[in-house]
Computed example of a mutant assay.
Amino acid sequence: MTVDLTLEDPRWRDLETLADRAIAVTLAHQGLDPETCEISVLGCDDARIAELNSEFRAKPRSTNVLSWPAEDLSADTPGGQPLAPEPDFTGEIALGDIAISYDTCAREADAAGKTMSDHTTHLLVHGLLHLLGYDHIRDPDATLMEGLEIEILGKLGIDNPYTE
């Protein structure tokens, strides 16, 4: 597995470890060989993610995580399975890019009474599922994506993030 990690915010001390683990377990859960997949992860702050959110989504505010899939794998029907990513001629599967904001992640973890590492792991799993074609805009898609997140996080020893 190739995780190209860029740390723009030095507070992300354990992001590499969390990303490697979350990505490997998520890919394996989805039946993908982690050794063939390439993903870029940017650990940044609220100012940087607000710039990215404004530039790519026309939403000039910070957010917790953003994803840019290498290709659109989304399902045509609500609640349907996304397409499987295909390797290129070298056998590698470029999945895309994820950016995660330390500030928003820390605020959300604190507000929810969760550890920073558990919440960060959840957001990395969430972001990777977006790269794999999952979404939560339509209700059936959200149900499918949240169910996968719960299963994957359970494998990582993290409680269901959607229960109060």
Rank of each mutant, 00 (worst) to 15 (best):
P60V: 13
N64L: 13
A19L: 04
H136P: 03
R21Q: 10
W68Y: 10
T36K: 01
A50G: 04
D118V: 13
I98G: 01
P34Y: 05
G43H: 03
S67V: 07
R61C: 12
L73P: 01
R107Q: 13
D97P: 03
P10A: 14
Y134N: 00
S62A: 15
P34D: 03
E149Q: 11
A22S: 06
I49A: 01
D45H: 09
D4E: 15
C44V: 10
S101A: 15
M145F: 14
A47C: 10
H136K: 07
P78A: 12
H119E: 06
V125K: 00
G127H: 02
I49G: 00
T120Y: 02
P10Q: 13
L18T: 06
A22I: 08
R21T: 12
P85G: 03
C44I: 07
L52D: 01
P87Q: 04
L15G: 00
L153Q: 01
T115V: 15
E35A: 14
P87W: 02
G133K: 00
R13P: 07
R138F: 09
A70Q: 03
E16V: 12
D14P: 07
K155H: 13
A47S: 14
P161E: 08
I93H: 00
E149Y: 05
G157I: 11
S40Y: 08
D110M: 14
S54N: 13
Q30G: 05
L131F: 08
E38L: 11
E38Q: 13
T90G: 01
L32N: 02
M145V: 08
E51C: 09
I49E: 01
G80T: 08
D110H: 15
G127V: 05
A111Q: 14
W68T: 04
R21D: 06
I49F: 06
D135G: 15
L42W: 07
I39W: 00
T143E: 15
S74E: 12
G31Q: 09
A75W: 04
L83I: 13
D139T: 15
N53A: 10
D103H: 05
G91M: 04
L131Y: 02
W12V: 00
D72I: 13
E86Y: 05
T63R: 04
E71S: 12
A84P: 03
L128Q: 00
R48L: 11
L73M: 09
T104F: 08
P161R: 03
T17Q: 11
V3A: 04
H122R: 09
K114A: 11
G127T: 05
E92A: 15
D46S: 09
E146I: 09
G113R: 06
D110P: 03
A94W: 01
Y102W: 15
